[in-house]
Amino acid sequence: MLSEKEIPVLREACQIAARVLEEMCEFVEAGMNTYDLDQFGKKRLAEYGAESACYQYRVRDLVFPSHTCLSVNDEIVHGIGRLDRQISEGDIIAVDVCVRYRGMIGDNARTVLIGKGKPEDEKLLAVTRTALERGIAEAIVGNRVGEISHAVQTYVEKNGFSVVRDFVGHGVGESMHEEPQIPNFGRRRSGPKLVPGMALAIEPMVNAGTHKVEMLGDGWTAVTKDRKRSAHFEHTVLVTPEGPEILTVA
Results as ranks from 00 to 15, higher is better:
G219N: 06
D91F: 06
L200G: 07
V72S: 08
R100L: 07
N143T: 00
V239H: 03
G243S: 13
L37Y: 01
D36R: 11
N33V: 04
P180Y: 07
P8N: 05
H170P: 08
S162P: 05
S66W: 12
A46P: 00
S149D: 13
E12A: 05
A222Q: 14
L37R: 01
A199V: 01
H78L: 11
A151Y: 11
A201I: 01
R134A: 04
R227T: 13
L113W: 02
A53P: 07
Y57P: 05
Y101E: 01
L113C: 15
I76K: 02
M215N: 05
R229L: 12
G169T: 14
L70Y: 04
C69E: 14
E234G: 00
G41P: 09
T68N: 13
R58M: 14
L2D: 02
I246S: 01
R85A: 03
V63K: 03
I202W: 08
A126D: 10
Y55G: 08
G173W: 03
D38E: 04
T130R: 12
A131W: 05
I80Q: 07
C54Q: 09
Q39C: 05
M215D: 07
G90Y: 11
V163K: 06
L10Q: 13
L83K: 15
I202N: 11
A250V: 01
G117C: 07
E157M: 03
A199M: 02
L21D: 10
G160A: 12
S66D: 14
T221C: 09
K43Y: 07
I182M: 10
T248K: 06
G115W: 08
G31S: 02
L37I: 14
A109F: 09
V95L: 14
L238N: 09
E157H: 06
K158D: 15
A231W: 03
G191V: 09
K5R: 12
A50K: 01
I7H: 08
